[in-house]
């Protein structure tokens, strides 16, 4: 029973990571490409870490140090995505639609 739950979480997580990477490869411009990895891949890694937590907790003592990796990633993924978007706006990377004005790079 526990094996089935762990397997479902494993396949779900790996599938989400793959979907995020396909999005990174296929979407048309940088600002849409930013969506795929920063959401889908982080969610996939969260599911994999839940599976690992269940697996190691089922073998005896409760194992919670996967929570550290999960918390750290869920805190840092939005920060790095925000920094990347700011850098792309600063460099005026090509976009499919008109970009908003960059307030910081005024002379």
């Amino acid at each position: 029973m526990l094996d089935i739950i762990i397997s479902i979480f494993l396949i779900l997580g790996a599938g989400f990571a793959l979907v995020g990477s396909i999005g990174l490869l296929r979407l048309p411009d940088f600002y849409t490409r930013l969506h795929g990895p920063t959401k889908a891949t982080t969610l996939g890694l969260g599911a994999l870490l839940i599976a690992s937590m269940i697996y190691f907790s089922s073998r005896g003592e409760v194992s919670l140090h996967e929570l550290l990796v999960t918390l750290f990633l869920f805190m840092t993924a939005p920060v790095s995505a925000h920094l990347l978007a700011k850098a792309a706006l600063h460099l005026r990377i090509r976009s499919e639609v008109d970009l908003p004005k960059d307030e910081q790079s005024k002379p």
Binding site: S21, P37, T41, T42, L73, L84, A87, L91, R94
Partner: peptide
């Protein structure tokens, strides 16, 4: 095509390596 695309790809690369 751009430098930010490469940084984003490297960011995703390390997350997948953790997985």
């Amino acid at each position: 095509p751009d430098i930010t695309d490469r940084i984003l790809a490297l960011d995703t690369l390390y997350i997948n390596a953790i997985a």
